[in-house]
């Protein structure tokens, strides 16, 4: 028996919007720790890891570990039927082949339940090693989204170079080239507007902008984004989900042939 009641149902709606274009089908894992997901895109180039901690739910009952295979497009269709202010409860029976999403309006005058068929998904769970990253950039998530969107109108790939001077996003295409440099800036009114660059050593990596743009669909979940890089390793683009957990996107770099 599984019953998870989330007062801020809009968080779950936003999570689905953030990942449904990257991943088609995925197993949601439910344990005493929380509600989580790990899935790769169909090309196995990017990986998304989601955690919504048990403490973040108003009610969290998970009698035994449960893995529920869902088609994210179908799940998104169902969650779109929930109002932004609705409370969402996820319910499932052990060994059942459906999951129920229950939506309660804030003043309890409308209660809906949507039952969705589960599916068997063969997915390998990857071990993500603990890494000390050589460059960690925290910046406003909207700024990061803007840069990725702008550069993708010029080129297909972005070179992200981080040094003590700042972080440079560069691209090249048929019509020309572009560079955007962001310097550390902590003299801002609100902490979420700051750009903070922590560098152990300079890092330069090349990535497909198509994936970066897909990750920025998580922008509504957080005012800030953290981009962690080490030379010759996948980048991690992390959006914290207030008081609940995180959504992390890992993207393998491109290398010169």
């Amino acid at each position: 028996m599984l019953e998870l009641r989330l007062l801020q149902g809009s968080l779950l709606k936003k999570v689905l919007e953030a990942i449904k274009d990257l991943v088609t089908d995925a197993n949601f894992d439910c344990s005493a720790t929380g509600f989580s997901l790990q899935a790769m895109d169909s090309s196995h180039v990017a990986l998304v890891a989601l955690l919504l901690r048990a403490e973040g739910f108003e009610h969290y009952r998970c009698d035994r570990n449960l893995s529920m295979g869902m088609n994210l497009n179908n799940m998104s269709k169902m969650l779109k039927c929930a109002g932004n202010d609705d409370i969402i409860t996820i319910k499932a029976d052990d060994g059942g082949d459906t999951v129920t999403f229950m939506f309660e309006s804030p003043n309890q005058d409308k209660i809906s339940d949507f039952e969705m068929k589960l599916m068997d998904i063969d997915s390998e769970h990857l071990g993500i090693p603990e890494t000390e990253y050589e460059a960690i950039i925290r910046m406003p998530s909207q700024e990061f989204a803007r840069i990725c969107r702008d550069l993708s109108t010029i080129g297909d790939t972005v070179v992200i170079s981080a040094s003590k001077e700042g972080v440079k996003f560069s691209t090249k295409g048929d019509i020309g080239s572009a560079n955007v440099v962001c310097r550390q800036n902590t003299s801002v009114d609100k902490p979420e507007d700051a750009t903070v660059i922590e560098i152990q050593q300079p890092v330069s990596l090349t990535f497909a902008l198509r994936y970066m743009n897909s990750f920025t669909k998580a922008t509504p979940l957080s005012n800030t984004v953290t981009v962690s890089m080490s030379n010759e390793l996948p980048v991690v683009v992390e959006y914290k989900i207030a008081e609940m957990g995180y959504i992390r996107f890992y993207l393998a770099p491109k290398i010169e042939e």
């Binding site: 790769m40 090309s43 196995h44 180039v45 990017a46 990986l47 390998e124 769970h125 990857l126 071990g127 993500i128 090693p129 790939t157 090349t206 497909a208 390793l233 996948p234 890992y250 993207l251 393998a252 770099p253 491109k254 290398i255 010169e256 042939e257």
Partner: peptide, 14 residues
């Protein structure tokens, strides 16, 4: 041109 690496060459199946 650049070659796209796969995430599975960095993270191993558990």
């Amino acid at each position: 041109s650049n070659k796209q690496l796969r995430i599975t060459s960095f993270f191993q199946a558990r």
